[in-house]
């Protein structure tokens, strides 16, 4: 794992509050595609229907879920691109 992979500071943060399916997933995948290997993406979503989809996305090859937080009406994911 390279130096960037060690960082706990997100390289990018996207606030997808208010967006509904399929936009949270599509925008997150697009953001991940732009990141370099080892970089961290912070995503904020408020659409409960997207939580299941994020569960699958975060378990897929090429990414790693570093942290997950539920704060009232929003869900915050920190996803590292491997």
């Amino acid at each position: 794992m390279n130096q960037a992979a060690e960082t706990t500071k997100p390289s990018q943060e996207i606030d997808l509050s208010g967006l509904t399916c399929p936009l949270p997933i599509l925008k997150t995948k697009a953001a991940l595609a732009r990141l370099g290997s080892g970089e961290l993406l912070k995503v904020i979503i408020t659409n409960p229907d997207s939580v299941r989809e994020f569960g699958v996305l975060c378990n897929s090859p090429g990414v790693k879920l570093e942290s997950f937080q539920e704060t009232g009406a929003s869900w915050i994911y920190q996803i590292r691109k491997l």
């Binding site: 399929p22 997933i25 599509l26 995948k29 989809e53 699958v56 996305l57 378990n59 897929s60």
Partner: peptide, 9 residues
């Protein structure tokens, strides 16, 4: 929308 998420499932 060709997201490909069905593949991961």
């Amino acid at each position: 929308v060709h997201c490909g998420l069905c593949a991961e499932a």
